[in-house]
Nucleic acid binder design. Sequence first.
DNA 1: AGCATTTATTTGCATTTGCAAATAGATTGC
DNA 2: GCAATCTATTTGCAAATGCAAATAAATGCT
Lengths: 160, 160
Amino acid sequence: MSRDFDLKRYLPYLLNRSGTRIADSFSVNLRNSYGITLQMWRVMAAVHHQDGQRVGELSGTTSIEISTLSRLLTTMEARGLVERRRPSRQPGADARVVTINLTKDGHSLTEAIIPLALQYEEIALDGLSEQEVATLKHLLDRLFENMAALDEEDAQKLAS
Amino acid sequence: MSRDFDLKRYLPYLLNRSGTRIADSFSVNLRNSYGITLQMWRVMAAVHHQDGQRVGELSGTTSIEISTLSRLLTTMEARGLVERRRPSRQPGADARVVTINLTKDGHSLTEAIIPLALQYEEIALDGLSEQEVATLKHLLDRLFENMAALDEEDAQKLAS
DNA sequence: AGCATTTATTTGCATTTGCAAATAGATTGC
DNA sequence: GCAATCTATTTGCAAATGCAAATAAATGCT
């Protein structure tokens, strides 16, 4: 190990390992208890949060790559969890878009899982004060914003 | 969206999206600039941090599933980045184990990438005070510990 | 209106992943 | 000292992933 790089204090490392541990634990529980994958849960939680998102938006909120997501939606549709809708040609509607909604079953499954999800959050946050939790969430938001800003800069460069 | 579950304040969500954004950006850069994948970087950084880790340990420090890692090591070995060693039968040595070392090339490639890695960390942390950075890293550590504790409890249950 | 361009989603194909089974090698008990 | 058991790593196989190309549907230009 070298002086100039301390892995144990390297943010992406810390972020990745805490994120994957929570995800892995929850993932196993989801599979055993509800027979769904973590990615499916992410889609359901995102659509539950905002119904009728288009596929591209949903890719953004779930962090699932868009082609992967498209296929995942196909299996979720087949399982009766979500619906794809092509907005009918209305004034101002865009029929290139496909919007995603939870089915009735999808909705109740999501509601059933939420308590478990919150339980995992609690476990992860065990022993932190309310203040610390608020700070942590705030800072994670900030990281995301910083990375989004970088992507926009790159987009600028490509456009110029 | 419902009152009892606010996705935008849900820790696993915040953790996942900031983690994947950083990972994705860095990943593209690694591929373009050095022709390696993010997972390869993770292995190199981990072995750089501590040389001669066994495969199982390395799986823990990189958060890469062990069979995936085994195959990744094969391609990295073929590329001359790392070496596998089976410890010779010594008093107290365990020859079931395979230890991983960076080759000379692997080491210098790692050293070459470190500045870029630190740059991404800086971008992510842009605008945060030293105090905030320290707090964030501390709290992320704590999350990891909490999840590790959970895994141990589960292991207990399985044993009982 | 008709053709070229842009945007949204899906699909083809090769690679990566993950679980479970197989292998390789220690260790324990008899 | 050898059979049974345990642990570390690798491999078989099916599923998931990601890039790039293809399709579908708008919009813009003339």
